[in-house]
Amino acid sequence: MFSKSNLLATLVGTVVMFFLGYLVWGIATVDFFSQHSLVDAMKDPPNLGLIAVGNLIAVFALSTLYSKWARGHHSLSQGFTYGAWIGVFMGVGMGLLQYGTMIWMDLTGHAVEAVLDIVFYGIIGAVIALVYQKTAVKE
């Protein structure tokens, strides 16, 4: 659980998740989601420290689960597939639960969020896999 590969993947994945998340949701899609949000629940300004800690914990969990899922075979495509399935869970599964229980966004917003989550977590999974691949013990 606290292997060199897992800790490095956690560190690199956290940095990528933080900055890619800011790029996607903090810059690129702000206008889109402001048009599809039914309730403005954003903090102004957001707590970047808590976001960073949340990313760290999330990526540690993702990296730890990836190490069990991959069983020693690491590739970018396998990592992307792993992350995309996490994105399906988060974006589609949790998104439909949120749409069914909360007044947060319209259906279009949730659908776009689902696609973004699949790609976003796919990239995070690929980054985790790349670090595992590069730090794997050579035989």
Rank of each mutant, 00 (worst) to 15 (best):
F32G: 02
D31N: 15
A61S: 11
V39S: 13
N55A: 08
K43F: 11
G54W: 00
T64G: 07
V59A: 05
V59E: 04
L48C: 04
Y66A: 08
P46K: 04
L23Q: 08
V30M: 08
V30G: 07
T64F: 09
V24S: 05
F32K: 00
Y66S: 01
S37T: 11
S67V: 00
I57C: 05
V53H: 05
N47R: 11
S34P: 07
G26S: 05
G49M: 04
T64D: 01
G54K: 00
V59R: 01
P45R: 11
L65T: 12
L50C: 07
L56N: 01
L65Y: 12
G21T: 04
I51H: 04
P45C: 09
V39F: 11
A28F: 06
H36R: 12
L20G: 02
L62C: 09
F32I: 06
V24R: 09
V30H: 01
W25A: 09
V53C: 01
I27P: 08
Q35L: 11
V39C: 06
L50R: 10
D44Y: 13
A52P: 02
V59D: 04
I27K: 13
P46T: 04
A58F: 07
A28D: 07
V59S: 09
F60E: 02
T64W: 06
T29Q: 06
G21I: 10
A41M: 14
D40G: 01
L62R: 08
F32P: 00
F60P: 03
L50N: 07
I57K: 00
L38D: 02
T64L: 05
T64N: 09
G21M: 07
Y22L: 13
V59Q: 01
N55V: 01
Q35F: 08
P45A: 13
L23A: 15
